[in-house]
């Protein structure tokens, strides 16, 4: 497998008059060609900020402080604005959270697709766009007639399919989807997840799926990264992580998911995520960690280290 996206030492800060908050804190991540990569973590852990920084969509008071985002051999963070514009949507398509509600309500779906394509390829012939749009609609499970409709005529699931079709219109290599099914009913969610999987197989599109819902990750991703307080605490094949979670946070997170038909008492995680304006010293998770090593976890910050062939974890428990 070849490397498609490599993030190195990425740090993103939100700054106010006196305080600086690291929403993404020295993150390293590798995403390979053709995989579905999952990014999990609870609200405000930095998932969306990380996704936004890949395409340099961070707005003030947020700022990328350091790091590199290497996509297909090119560092996106040092690219000129015009070159970056070509990468956005053409090479990396991004479906932000709740984007299915961002369709223009007074423009027919077809014309919105034309707009997207024309923004990047001015010379694309109309006939070609129509053919491509119809093809894509069939791939995402929509009838070609939907192209003539307005957004309000569609259900939430259909609008999400439209967005996915649009994101594929220029045949991107990487698709970043942030909580693509969160506002949808379970039945519709299943259809959308199946669709993402189909796209991954059919077009070989690499997918970065961001969601807080661990059950969704369990169902469709190949590899998974767990984020906590701006840091990646664990990475590995999703099967291994669910079978044997290494980081205490991952362990507790998995134990707190209710499973249908199981009455075993759920654990929950005592305490709260840290206030990132005043982060704790040492490991970010140590104040809540049931397995913390006194004298070590509150002093030194654990690095994300390789612990086996495919697994990495940032925890002192796994350092010799």
């Amino acid at each position: 497998m070849s490397l498609l996206l490599k993030i190195e030492g990425l740090t993103v800060a939100y700054e106010s008059d006196s305080k600086r908050l690291l929403a993404v804190n020295n993150v390293d991540l590798e995403i390979f060609q053709g995989e579905i990569f999952g990014l999990a973590g609870e609200s405000a852990c930095g998932k969306t900020t990380l996704a936004n920084s890949i395409l340099r969509l961070i707005k003030p008071p947020g700022r990328i402080i350091s790091g590199r985002v290497i996509f297909d051999g090119v560092d996106l963070l040092s690219l000129g604005e015009e070159d970056l514009r070509r990468i956005r949507w053409e090479k990396i398509a991004y479906i932000p959270q709740a984007s299915m509600n961002a369709l223009n309500p007074v423009v027919r779906i077809y014309d919105q697709i034309v707009d997207v394509v024309r923004a990047h390829r001015k010379d694309f012939p109309e006939e070609e766009i129509r053919r491509r749009a119809e093809e894509l609609f069939v791939s995402v499970g929509l009838a070609p007639e939907v192209l003539k409709m307005y957004p309000h005529e569609l259900s939430g699931g259909m609008r999400q399919r439209v967005i996915i079709a649009m994101s594929l219109s220029l045949n991107p290599k990487l698709l970043i989807a942030d909580e693509p099914t969160t506002a949808l009913d379970v039945v519709v969610q299943r259809g959308i997840l199946q669709l993402l999987k189909d796209i991954n197989k059919k077009f070989g599109t690499t997918i970065l799926l961001i969601t807080h819902d661990m059950a969704v990750h369990a169902q469709i991703v190949d590899r998974l990264a767990i984020m906590y307080a701006g840091k990646i605490v664990e990475v590995g094949p999703v099967k291994d992580i669910f079978e044997r979670p290494l980081h205490p946070y991952t362990q507790l997170l998995i134990a707190s998911i209710p499973r249908v038909g199981e009455k075993r008492r759920l654990a929950g995680i005592p305490g709260l995520p840290p206030d990132l304006r005043n982060p704790p010293p040492g490991c970010m998770f140590h104040p809540r960690c049931p397995l913390r090593i006194q004298g070590r976890c509150e002093r030194a910050e654990p690095a994300l280290r390789q612990v086996s062939n495919e697994r990495k974890v940032a925890c002192h428990l796994y350092e010799g």
Partner: peptide, 12 residues
Amino acid sequence: SSIPVPDPSRRW
């Protein structure tokens, strides 16, 4: 049948 099971060894 649409509820995602939080277990990668029991996929749809």
